[in-house]
């Protein structure tokens, strides 16, 4: 028997005695009685198909688009992320250029996709593209990483990225400033909606990395005092068009 079989056998052996449902104290009959073999049929019934209806208990999100947009903006502000919605692309690229000049960006890292390529064109700086693989040191020396995303989540102020939608795994965490370019249609209400979207968009061939980014990187490991930019980006900017 290999370790896999050994572990699975121990699990099956252990599960012959059912555990009391959470919230109830064990009735005596549930407990193992020495010398009396417990029956396999005592196991709890098989899992039901219904997933948890988390939406009813999680923090509330309004049904309309303006409500959700306002909630996202509020959450982003609480998280110390910079969020801005623009009427059109011209406005957005002007804001990008302005940001470039105030922060003096020399090099940009990005991936080739409609919005991100357009953003890089506007920035007019040398770009480290990740699509065909890249040199880590080159990316490390970039001042900003520009990516797209899969969704913005109103409930938590999070950005949903995947290795496919956001130029791989490192682009959204290695440069000191992460700029996300999103479309307003990408705003979803809550976490259950975000997971539904992931499944609908990718299943069964999911990207190897899917993640929620909720504000710039942070730590509280020194006296529980909040510091931004622990290992990931110090700044997170979300521009929405």
């Amino acid at each position: 028997m290999n370790e896999r079989e050994k572990i699975l056998t121990r699990i099956r052996e252990a599960l012959k005695v059912p555990a009391p449902r959470p919230g109830t104290h064990a009735p005596a009959s549930h407990l193992p009685v020495p010398g009396v073999p417990s029956l396999p049929s005592l196991r709890v019934p098989p899992p039901t198909a219904a997933p948890v209806e988390a939406r009813r208990w999680l923090p509330k999100v309004g049904p309309s688009f303006p409500e959700q947009l306002a909630l996202f903006a509020q959450n982003a502000a609480d998280l110390k992320a910079h969020f801005q919605v623009f009427a059109d692309w011209t406005e957005l690229s002007a804001a990008l250029v302005q940001l470039r000049d105030t922060e003096n960006w020399q090099r940009v890292a990005s991936h080739q996709s409609e919005l991100s390529s357009q953003a890089c064109a506007a920035l007019q700086r040398p770009v480290c593209w990740t699509d065909q693989g890249y040199d880590v040191l080159a990316m490390e020396s970039c001042d900003v990483g520009v990516t797209e995303c899969d969704a913005l989540i109103a409930q938590t102020g999070s950005v949903l990225v995947t290795s496919r939608s956001a130029g791989g795994r490192a682009l959204s965490v290695l440069p000191p400033h992460h700029v996300v370019i999103a479309r307003r249609e990408q705003l979803v209400a809550d976490l259950p909606a975000a997971f539904a979207l992931l499944k609908q968009k990718y299943a069964p061939e999911f990207p190897s990395m899917m993640g929620f980014i909720t504000g710039p990187s942070r730590t509280g490991d020194i006296e529980r005092i909040l510091v931004l930019g622990a290992h990931g980006p110090k700044k997170l900017t979300i521009f929405c068009v």
Binding site: A170, V173, L174, G211, S217, R218, A230, H231, G232
Partner: peptide, 12 residues
């Protein structure tokens, strides 16, 4: 995680 260290550990 909060810091981004696991993200980098799993990326590079």
């Amino acid at each position: 995680e909060n810091e981004g260290n696991a993200r980098l550990t799993a990326a590079l």
